[in-house]
């Protein structure tokens, strides 16, 4: 059977941000099944819809730049395919576009986030707390690794803050973090570290992933 590999860019927002990575796989399989597109099944005793997500997204994070790899068994019009799939998607999951994959999972190097911190503390105070944190020589965290147990890691050199904005009671941070096979720091690590070091009681924190980049700096696609 013909197998044409495809990569969809999709949005995860609203209720859907609380779907865990494992559950996302199931939700997408079911949506694809409902859509009746000519999807490719893994072969064997118990065939399943083949799906692969190049980069996991932390629970609670919104994104318009998530990727999902799947395959179809016949050539399709990508716009029509997108439309058909979207009719079967649950609220909060939306296919934004479909194309043939260019890069491989291992090419992924970084991800960019916009993070909104909300607090009763004035925004200037939040901003200077962030600046203080970034002035330190090192920012050590405990990182769990499969082989070594918990290890100390200095994440300071890996946090790349590309901009900040303040509004009343709000601080927006634009940050680039490593997301590769070698080193992956998800947005929650950054948020938790900032919360712990600043001691600020945030009333809410919203994170959105805005970009996934290759090691060479190109947009992942």
């Amino acid at each position: 059977m013909e197998k044409i590999n495809l990569r969809a860019v999709f949005e995860k927002s609203g209720h859907a941000v609380f779907i865990s990575h494992l559950d996302l796989m199931r939700a997408m399989q079911r949506a694809i099944k409902r859509s009746k597109i000519p999807v490719w099944y893994s072969q064997g005793f118990n065939p399943h819809i083949y799906l692969n997500f190049p980069l996991a997204l932390s629970l609670g994070v919104t994104s318009k730049t998530e990727f999902m790899d799947f395959a179809v068994t016949e050539p399709c019009d990508y716009a029509a395919l997108t439309e058909t799939l979207n009719k079967a998607m649950p609220e909060g999951l939306k296919i934004l576009g479909i194309a043939e994959p260019v890069f491989a999972n291992k090419d992924i190097g970084f991800a960019e986030y916009t993070i909104e911190f909300k607090s009763d503390v004035p925004s200037e105070e939040m901003l200077s707390a962030l600046e203080n944190m970034m002035k330190a020589d090192t920012i050590e965290i405990d990182k769990r690794s499969k082989s070594k147990g918990t290890v100390k890691l200095d994440i300071k050199p890996h946090i790349n803050i590309t901009g900040t904005e303040t509004a009343s009671g709000l601080l927006h941070v634009f940050v680039r973090l490593p997301a590769g096979l070698e080193l992956n720091i998800n947005s929650n690590v950054f948020i938790d570290t900032f919360a712990a070091l600043s001691g600020i009681d945030f009333t809410s924190v919203y994170a959105e992933r805005t970009k996934i980049l290759c090691l060479n700096g190109e947009n992942f696609r």
Partner: peptide
């Protein structure tokens, strides 16, 4: 974000 399996508390299922 603080609880186990949060998707069961927010609705919005297909």
């Amino acid at each position: 974000p603080l609880v186990k399996s949060p998707s069961r508390y927010i609705g919005g299922e297909f």
